[in-house]
Nucleic acid binder design. Structure first.
Lengths: 137, 137
DNA sequence: TATTGTTATACTCTATAACTATA
DNA sequence: TATAGTTATAGAGTATAACAATA
């Protein structure tokens, strides 16, 4: 069945990319989750609950995650003027710089692989991944 | 640059598949790593060091991982007759059954997504993923 | 009362360092 | 001496339950 082969290919490539992300993150003491937090916060300023939901984590887990990132000066908590229960999270300048650095390195690490495709095939792969995984289930 | 778009697409699809794997694993108290261990052991019987290297983990980390899986009756340790220092690891029947179950569920979970492609495009996606990530860096 | 977030607790995952047994 | 694996330790990641503040 073609579908099984496709699922297998997706799972295998997932673990491979996870390996790259984990290795690059580890060089800067960033777990996969912290890496993802930095990536998300590059262009968003969510409240704690939003970010936890987006990551698929419990809010208490996120509290700890943000505690540790805040202690390192990578993120900060801000008050929300509309609702005083709410805590907004955002990158500090140092966090933004680290995020850009690390994602730049991810690009460099994966470029030898992506460069194996000519531009046409690369576009096609982007398109196919988008169709498969970027749609409403 | 096309390459950046491709890397972004790979990273995004990676986090999405990780989300699916994490959710399905959690339903059976399996972390992403335990899930991967089960997947690998389906058709291999490696020694501890081999498995640790394959997973990119320290051998001490693997000891704990296998301890916990063994306590649950999913894997077992075996002696290696050639070298008495070596410990081989393999799935128990219960572990194999769980592995098949959980990977079956992963297939079912991803099938609605993969079914959005017609067979031709699916084959092409498998081929492209193979070219990008399954080659020597 | 319901929602937002934190804290206390317990467990898993992870690496480093020190160790035992075997080669 | 070198290699295979375990154990002790410490810290991060995770969820559940209980809590405080605000709505």
């Amino acid at each position: 069945m073609t579908s099984d082969a496709l699922v297998d290919a997706l799972v295998r490539s997932t673990f491979q990319v996870v390996g790259v992300l984990t290795r690059i993150g580890a060089e800067r003491d960033l777990s996969l989750t912290q890496l993802r937090v930095l990536g998300i916060l590059r262009d968003r300023r969510p409240r704690m609950t939003e970010l936890a939901a987006f990551l698929g984590l419990d809010k208490s887990t996120l509290s700890g995650l943000i505690d540790r990132a805040e202690r390192r000066g990578l993120v900060a908590r801000g008050k929300n003027p509309q609702d005083r229960r709410v805590v907004d999270v955002f990158l500090t300048p140092a966090g933004l710089e680290l995020a850009e650095q690390v994602y730049g390195e991810v690009r460099r690490a994966l470029t030898p692989a992506t460069a194996r495709l000519d531009p046409q095939d690369g576009d096609q792969l982007v398109q196919l991944l988008h169709t498969v995984l970027h749609s409403p289930d």
